[in-house]
Write a protein that binds this DNA or RNA. Structure first.
Length: 151
DNA sequence: GCCAACGTTGGC
DNA sequence: GCCAACGTTGGC
């Protein structure tokens, strides 16, 4: 059982959008490491933090659940999509996604600044590593519990 | 295979 | 808007 952190920009797709939609394909990931996590490691039923980046108060805003195993991201085949990839074919898709399901919105966001302030306990958390920009990150079970306890 | 140039991410 | 860090591309 693994835990995860998934980033989005709230202007594009935030926790309230997910709440409204219920389940949503996590499309548009174009980073191999993040893809590999979704394709090779994520299992249905696992949980992830929804982290909001590039906004006024970056932090964790909600919890979601991995709703299924990975499948090819359809936007890679769509010429009109900003995520179109002309090197991808249906026979050999390059990009994968999972569906994610809304679990809950946190009572209050757990801000990046708070996580930073607890760098000692959260030692090794990928989010706090300098220069770490990965949009999908594993979170250890221990860190998961520690972070939720801050709510 | 190296590496410079370029593009993107994301906090501040 | 700035800039550090990282990933990708493409010439050689």
């Amino acid at each position: 059982m693994s835990f995860w952190l998934m980033k989005s920009e709230p202007d594009a797709f935030g926790i309230d959008d997910l709440k409204r939609r219920g389940t949503e394909p996590w499309s548009g990931v174009r980073n191999y490491q993040a893809r590999n996590f979704m394709r090779d490691r994520m299992r249905p039923g696992e949980r992830a933090f929804l982290y909001h980046s590039s906004c006024e108060a970056p932090g964790i805003y909600g919890v979601l659940e991995i709703a299924g195993t990975a499948y090819p991201d359809p936007t890679q085949f769509d010429r009109k999509s900003p995520y179109h990839d002309k090197a991808a074919t249906r026979e050999q898709p390059r990009w994968f996604l999972v569906d994610v399901k809304f679990v809950r919105k946190l009572e209050r966001p757990i801000l990046l600044s708070e996580l930073r302030a607890r760098e000692q306990e959260l030692h090794g958390l990928m989010l706090l590593r300098k220069g770490s920009r990965l949009s999908i990150q594993p979170v250890s079970a221990e860190h998961w519990d520690q972070i939720l306890a801050l709510e």
